[in-house]
Design a binder for these strands. Structure first.
Lengths: 142, 142
DNA sequence: CCTTGACCTTCCAGTTACTGGAAGCCTTAT
DNA sequence: ATAAGGCTTCCAGTAACTGGAAGGTCAAGG
């Protein structure tokens, strides 16, 4: 089948499928007219990738997962390790975002949001913090 | 002062400060030897940017915030709007990550993680879902 | 037979916000 | 004189696509 149909079946954009070929993830056959030709197995792989990507796995992890998937003699521990590593990344990102959220929502709550210029958000961004210690450590300066 | 000291005082890497000049965020003077020359106000701006970036604001938002900061006749409502927009983005990302986390941790919990090949993680990634309806919609296919 | 439109092809450029590295100048200390 | 360290510019690469231009292919309609 042509790339358009493979895209419709896998849920991936045509451009993305071409990209996945370029980086060696899924290599289709070619028809006599030069068109890419995808079979069931190709589409299956593409859908696999679509799902792995939607769980936030990076392309490198996807490559690993695909290889494990195709390796009948894999150990589930290897898959699990990739997954737990990614879960750790997700948790790290969530924690970072939550911290941002906390700070930012506090500032927003403190901001009047009217036509006066006073603003705790800008105030906080502009606030001088303990730079003196660092400055002194380096050089008396000009 | 030279860029190295501005970096130490602002907390930004030298490379980043050069980059911020390139995109027109903070333009230092130049000394007679061609070196960049930063004053207090420049360092202040750089530190402002470092803090805004650490809250996850994009460069465009930073540009806006910096302009508002320097505009004595700003309305705090404008600042607040930028901030709430960004807060929305953060919430969107958190929600997305949480959904990933939920799914992924469920799969990990279901995976034995031993040397046998059976693995619900791969099973879920490979699972056929309702593609028939879509397939039928488009074309009977080959 | 010709055209139209939908697909398909390749290649190039742009996105975000830096980061690393090479080649070379400036300054200061030994 | 030279070595170290900081400074300069410019180029390339990152992740994972996405958009667009220029052009080939194919099936249907007139």
């Amino acid at each position: 089948m042509n790339i358009g149909r493979a895209a419709a079946l896998s849920g991936l954009p045509v451009k993305t499928i071409r990209y996945y070929e370029e980086i060696g993830l899924v290599r289709p056959d070619r028809s006599s007219n030069g068109y890419r030709d995808y079979g069931e197995a190709h589409v299956h792989k593409l859908a696999f990738l679509a799902r792995a990507r939607s769980l936030g796995f990076g392309i490198d992890d996807c490559r690993t997962l695909l290889a494990l998937y195709e390796d009948r003699s894999r150990a589930s521990a290897d898959v699990r390790e990739v997954a737990t590593g990614h879960l750790g990344e997700i948790d790290r990102k969530i924690a970072e975002l939550r911290e941002m959220r906390e700070t930012l929502s506090g500032l927003i709550a403190a901001c009047a949001g009217d036509d006066r210029p006073d603003c705790p958000i800008l105030g906080s961004l502009a606030a001088e913090r303990e730079t003196e210690a660092l400055g002194a450590m380096l050089d008396p300066g000009p």
